[in-house]
Amino acid sequence: MHEAIGHGLEGDFNRKGTRSALPGASANEWPPNCTVVDDGTLVGRRGSLNVDDEGTPTRNTVLIENGVLRGYIQDRMNARLMGVESTGNGRRQSFAHLPIARANTYMLAGPHHPDEIIASVKKGIYARNFGGGQVDITSGKFVFSTTEAYRIENGKLTAPIKDATLVGDGPTVLNRVSMVGNDLALDTGIGVCGKEGQSVPVGVGQPTLRIDGLTVGGTADGSGGAE
């Protein structure tokens, strides 16, 4: 969520036009089952704040509603330059850094039970936990390392997979979201986002998603892609 979507909806990249054409330029380009919010007000969460580092109260900002792009997350400078309001996302690592837009992005739950999603996959990978990730905002290409993952064969979890890397591009992957789980889970409180040399704690969350195809890298046999 954070790499594939969150960064792409940050105001600065959109103001400069240096990010790839995410779906959302017009309606229906996002999967209609996707609703994405940025919420800095959730009680007790790692990335939550009462006010951001520019004094703007944080809020719950709807970014994508049932597949339709509604807005970006903003710090004050980029908001002014784009003629909109700050969404309370101006964050800085410390007094010695300039505030920039930072995300606490969550995808809301959908209708499917996670077991139903796993059962629907003939051959694939169930990625339960991710390690580090990175995105090239301009091309939309992103990678994640899995820290806990399993093969899915004929709808059942089988062998564990070690140190696999998933690579894809945001726009394509979003269009391949075919099922959204009813099990929205927020992060366990370890998220750190690095951008322009600044690290800040952030929150992220999503339900189980079925993505119909993403490149899986590794050295084991049969690692070249999932169906």
């Binding site: 390690g131 580090g132 990175q134 992103f142 990678v143 590794g218």
Partner: peptide, 18 residues
Amino acid sequence: TDLMGSGVNPVTGDYSRG
């Protein structure tokens, strides 16, 4: 020309990056 992500495991030496 470009590598992405943190897929290098220093304990095992396993290397897998975008």
